[in-house]
Every structure is written in C-alpha cells, then in structure tokens.
Amino acid sequence: MSNTIVIIRYRALPEHVDTARQEITALVACVLASEPDCSGITLLQDSADPTGFTLIETWPSREIFLGPHMQQPHIQSFIQAADRFLAGPPDISFWHPVTAA
C-alpha cells in the first residue's frame, strides 16, 4: 500500500504573514521531531501572493493523519491560536501517488 500525500493550504492574514510563516515553520519542526508516522513535510510560500502557504505531507494513511496526528497537543494548540494569524481554516486534500502500469 502506498503512502497518502496530504496537501494543506493556508491563507495568512496580510498583516500577519511573518507570524504565520514562523508558526507554521515551528509546527512543521515539531511534527517532524515528534511524530514518526510522518515521513516528510515540504513547506511552500506562494511567490506571487505571500499570504499563501502550502504544506505537502507524507503519511501512511488518511486515517492516521485525521486520527492520531490531529489529536496531538501541538496540533490542537496550533488550531487554537491560528485565528490570530490565519484568514480561515485550511483547505486539506488527500492524494496518492500514481505508478506506471
């Protein structure tokens, strides 16, 4: 079974782009350091619109991402603080790699 790729898109409040970048970067570091199920995260910032951030994460399954991962204290803390620097909830989508037939 292949990994699940999770794409998370955030929109920062224009006046809090630096704070959003710092908070998301800190969250990524915490997830990578404390959640062995996560096998990688890439953080991107939109070069045309700096309020846009995208995370590309690799997890064993959608269920692990939505279950144990989302219940972690660092995730819950980020969610509680996010309205200070984000324009709304993230857009989260789930993908799988396509292999040649």
Rank of each mutant, 00 (worst) to 15 (best):
M1K: 15
S2F: 06
S2D: 07
S2L: 05
N3V: 10
N3P: 13
T4M: 07
I5Q: 06
I5F: 04
I7P: 03
I8E: 05
R9F: 02
Y10L: 11
R11Q: 15
A12T: 04
L13I: 12
L13K: 14
L13F: 06
P14Q: 09
P14F: 09
E15L: 07
E15V: 06
H16Q: 14
V17E: 11
D18R: 14
A20S: 08
R21C: 13
Q22I: 09
I24H: 06
I24E: 04
I24V: 10
A26H: 06
A26P: 05
L27K: 02
L27H: 02
V28W: 03
A29V: 08
C30V: 11
V31L: 07
L32R: 05
L32M: 10
L32P: 05
A33C: 06
A33N: 11
A33T: 08
S34A: 12
E35I: 04
P36E: 13
P36W: 10
P36M: 12
D37S: 13
D37E: 14
D37N: 13
C38K: 06
C38Y: 02
S39W: 08
S39V: 13
S39F: 10
S39G: 12
S39P: 06
G40H: 02
L43K: 04
L43V: 06
L43D: 02
L44Y: 03
Q45T: 02
Q45I: 02
D46P: 00
S47W: 11
S47N: 13
S47V: 15
A48D: 15
A48N: 15
T51N: 12
G52H: 05
F53E: 01
F53M: 01
L55P: 01
I56E: 00
I56M: 01
E57Q: 08
E57F: 08
S61T: 14
S61I: 11
S61N: 09
R62H: 05
E63M: 12
F65T: 00
F65K: 00
L66H: 08
G67A: 06
G67M: 07
P68W: 03
P68Q: 12
P68R: 14
H69Q: 05
H69V: 03
M70V: 00
M70L: 12
Q71G: 03
Q71S: 10
Q72N: 04
Q72P: 02
Q72S: 04
P73D: 04
H74W: 00
H74T: 01
H74N: 02
I75C: 05
I75G: 00
I75K: 00
F78W: 04
F78C: 01
F78T: 00
I79Y: 02
I79L: 09
Q80I: 01
Q80G: 01
A81P: 01
A81C: 05
A82S: 14
A82T: 08
F85H: 04
A87L: 15
A87Q: 14
G88D: 07
G88E: 06
P89N: 13
P89T: 10
P89Y: 03
P89H: 11
D91S: 15
D91K: 14
I92C: 09
S93P: 01
S93W: 00
F94Q: 01
F94V: 02
W95Q: 08
W95R: 07
P97V: 10
P97Y: 08
V98M: 03
V98D: 00
T99P: 04
T99F: 14
A101L: 15
A101Q: 15
